[in-house]
């Protein structure tokens, strides 16, 4: 069963493009990644799904219900975590969560204390005194408390420290094991790779690819910097999987796609290597390589 489905979903802000003819299908029980660079249309898609904005044309549905006509019914079963969180002043965390819970007609339960402990949220602190990271943790609690069937997460780990990020992923996996469908938007590919089974890649308002994470891993791209004590010859680095090679004297830089072990083996043949760094390229670079030509 498809939990989230969009058909030719389009949103224009006046003349400015938001998203164009977006087709997405998210199956029940999957953790679906939604990645793209800033300004690609991720938040526009999400805001249309949660009915903060209205589509210019096309349609979207959650649980088979229309996101515009049946917004209230959909929201009863949806947990939404925005990228940036703002709350009312002069309320404690507990008061805010109680206020939120009353909209669902369900009082706060043991789940609150369990989650508050996991995310180290102080329930009696005033919202105004919280840092943006702590507000984000409150938002996570608020998003999960009513036991939603689908989670819509917009850059969910923004502002969370690594420990909290790890706990958040753990909670997401646990929720998913219990049947919750997750729609996970991010501009960090590695983050999506870590938790999702499938991922849609959005660029300039259009979905350019929907990939299994496994096939994306095969395409995994690394940026390699190399420094040697002696000048490097370009021919030494003409290896399979090497792209955008640039050599300047003792320094070389290139993008590498494929398994990392064959690369390390080849590099070990080189003499006089002084420094080697292998890092994840920016999402923009990945798009330039894999999806740039499709537009």
């Amino acid at each position: 069963m498809k939990v989230i489905e969009t058909r030719k979903l389009t949103k224009f802000y006046g003349k400015h493009r938001g998203i164009v003819d977006l087709d997405l299908e998210v199956e029940e029980g999957e953790i679906f990644g939604f990645v793209g660079p800033n300004g690609a249309g991720k938040s526009t898609t999400i805001r249309t799904l949660v009915n903060l904005i209205f589509p210019t044309r096309g349609r979207a549905s959650i649980f088979g219900l229309d996101v515009v006509q049946d917004a209230k019914e959909i929201k009863k079963h949806t947990g939404y975590l925005p990228s940036e969180v703002e709350y009312y002043d002069s309320m404690t965390v507990k008061e805010l969560l109680e206020y939120s819970a009353r909209f669902y007609g369900a009082p706060l339960n043991d789940r609150l204390h369990e989650l508050a402990e996991v995310f180290q949220v102080e329930l009696f602190r005033n919202i105004t005194d919280l840092s943006s990271g702590n507000k984000k943790k409150v938002a996570i609690l608020q998003c999960l408390l009513h036991k939603p069937k689908v989670l819509i997460l917009d850059e969910p780990t923004n502002g969370l420290d690594p420990l909290m990020q790890a706990r958040f992923y753990e909670i997401l996996r646990r929720e998913n094991e219990q049947g919750v469908t997750v729609f996970f938007s991010s501009h960090i590919l590695s983050e999506v790779q870590r938790i999702c089974r499938r991922v849609a890649i959005i660029k300039e308002g259009r979905v350019v690819a929907v990939e299994d994470i496994a096939s994306l891993r095969e395409k995994s791209l690394s940026r390699v910097h190399l420094e040697s004590r002696t000048p490097i010859s370009e021919t030494e680095l003409r290896l399979s999987g090497v792209r955008s090679l640039s050599v300047q004297g003792e320094k070389a830089e290139f993008l590498y796609s494929g398994e990392i072990n064959p690369l390390l083996e080849a590099l070990s043949q080189l003499q006089q290597i002084e420094r080697l760094t292998i890092e994840e390229p920016s999402l923009e670079e990945i798009f330039m390589h894999y999806y740039g030509g499709e537009q």
């Binding site: 209230k72 929201k75 009863k76 949806t78």
Partner: peptide, 16 residues
Amino acid sequence: RRTAEFLLTRPLTRSE
């Protein structure tokens, strides 16, 4: 005050 995102994602209609 940017709280509309919180309020309008609760289960209630715009008319409510």
